[in-house]
Computed example of a mutant assay.
Amino acid sequence: MTAELTSGRGHLLELGNTRWHRPALYVFSFIVLAHWAEHMAQAIQIWVLGWPRPQAGGLLGLAYPWLVTSEWLHYGYAILMLIGLWTLRGGFVGRARTWWNVALWIQVWHHVEHLLLLVQAITHSYLLGKPVPTSIAQLLFPRVELHLFYNTIVFIPMVIAMVLHLRPRAEERARMRCTCALAHA
């Protein structure tokens, strides 16, 4: 039974990096862009509309203010990003793989920061005696700006990786196991 389950997961991972790589990248990209939209809405609420930070929760925060203050939500997204970057990396080769790995390793750190925040929220024991859960980098930068920064430095290498993946060099195209590459011009 265990071997069957393992081979089933392995088969799904294989499909996600071969035949289903392009649709999987589209779904993952949609999730990433939706998250970006939330951060951009929050930034507009603060810097354009002049809302106080506690009331600026993005679009989701307007409907469910309690949800966006939940460390579980933020940790869940961080782990989803990490899983997505890890599971889809097998479909990348060459230069695209290098850039995808850059995004993955930055997300590993981002995940560690969110894990630290979640542990603090659960234990009510806050870093350096702060009154709220605080990440390491948050000791130097405000949370909204920090998360815009983190999402930017993960997003940029992801986009570079996807562009290079769609437009591979001939030797990279020959090593690809998926059909993501665009037709030759």
Rank of each mutant, 00 (worst) to 15 (best):
V108C: 00
P157H: 02
S7C: 05
L85E: 03
H111Q: 10
I44A: 11
R97E: 14
G94I: 04
H74D: 04
H124W: 05
R143E: 15
V132G: 05
I136V: 15
W105R: 10
L62I: 12
P157C: 01
A185D: 14
A34K: 04
P54N: 11
Y150Q: 04
W100I: 08
H114G: 03
V144F: 03
L67S: 12
V163F: 12
L88I: 08
N101Y: 12
H35E: 08
A41K: 00
W72D: 14
W36Y: 05
W72S: 15
A43P: 11
M40E: 03
R9T: 05
A3R: 13
R169E: 12
L15V: 10
M176E: 10
A161E: 02
L115M: 09
M158E: 03
V144G: 03
T134L: 06
Y75P: 05
L148V: 11
Q55V: 10
M158H: 02
P168V: 07
A181R: 07
L82M: 11
Y150K: 02
T18V: 08
V108F: 00
H35V: 11
C178W: 01
G58N: 03
H35A: 06
C180K: 02
A161S: 06
R53A: 14
H147L: 03
L73V: 08
C178Y: 01
P168Q: 07
L140V: 11
A63L: 14
A37N: 04
G57W: 00
A103H: 00
R53M: 13
L13Q: 11
V159Y: 07
A34E: 07
A78K: 00
W100S: 05
Y150S: 05
I160D: 00
I136Y: 15
P54D: 14
